[in-house]
Every structure is written in structure tokens, then in C-alpha cells.
């Protein structure tokens, strides 16, 4: 299992990384504080080395989580079935959940902080999605 974290907040990256490690969720973790760099990374990884899971923050300067998803649109078909995107946000605004439904690549919206039970549910979902 390969996981990518995209979040401009270094404490949040630290925290999520530590929880993923504790729960043995993934073999490798790659994290980005700039979504633009994550885009380049994904383009280079296509099609065989795309990550299984991406945790994506929404509120970031210059390129927001939504901008990231829009930029990824052309790759949607190639990513479908290989890569699940989870929006990991501190936002509790219902409008964000509604908007997420417009993006087929988004598996679910998770409220920060990530914890054991949430990760367990995600693991189950990812495995189902793959099979």
C-alpha cells in the first residue's frame, strides 16, 4: 500500500503520518505541502505507480484542494479503480461534503483528526474498491 499526503500544515502532516504508521495502514508515505508538486508526482507515476490512497487537505493557499481535483480531471479515467482520494479537512461545513460529491475520484470526506476507527473504515473501503 502506498499513501500520499497533501497538506500545507506541517503539524497536520506530522500527525497524519504518525497515525498511519501506528495503525500500520501503509507501507510507504509521500507527503507534499504544495499541491502543484503532488500533481507533477502523479503525472510521473502514471499509470502503474499511482498511490493507492491520497489524503487531500482543502484549505491551502495558491492551489486549494478543489483546484487540485480540477487539475486532476483529465487523469480521472486512468486513476479510477487504482487510486482513492480522501478529503481530510478540518472543515465541518456541510457545503464541502456536498461539493465533494461532484468529484468521482473522491471516495469520502473525513474530518480531522484522523484516528484508528476512521482508518479501519478507509482500509476496508479501499480493499473493496480494488477487488
Amino acid at each position: 500500500m502506498h499513501t500520499v499526503l497533501i497538506d500545507d500544515d506541517y503539524i497536520s502532516i506530522f500527525l497524519t503520518t504518525r497515525i498511519l504508521q501506528r495503525e500500520n495502514f501503509t507501507d510507504t508515505i509521500t507527503s507534499f505541502q504544495l499541491p502543484q508538486e503532488a500533481i507533477h508526482y502523479l503525472q510521473d507515476a502514471m499509470p502503474d505507480q499511482v498511490p493507492d490512497v491520497i489524503f487531500l487537505d482543502l484549505n491551502m493557499p495558491i492551489m486549494s484542494g478543489w483546484d487540485f481535483l480540477d487539475t486532476l480531471k483529465p487523469l480521472e479515467a486512468q486513476l479510477a479503480g487504482r487510486c482513492s482520494i480522501y478529503i481530510l479537512t478540518s472543515s465541518v461545513a456541510p457545503s464541502d461534503k456536498l461539493k465533494a460529491e461532484e468529484y468521482s475520484l473522491v471516495a469520502s470526506v473525513i474530518n480531522k483528526p484522523l484516528d484508528g476507527p476512521k482508518l479501519q473504515a478507509i482500509r476496508t473501503q479501499v480493499l473493496e474498491n480494488r477487488s
Binding site: D9, I11, S12, L58, T89, S90, S91, V92, A93, K112
Partner: peptide, 11 residues
Amino acid sequence: VSHNLRGPLAN
């Protein structure tokens, strides 16, 4: 409240 207050709180 959603982002800036809840961000550090969630952390």
C-alpha cells in the same frame, strides 16, 4: 470556524 479555528484544534 471551519478552517482556521478547527484546523489547530483538530491537530
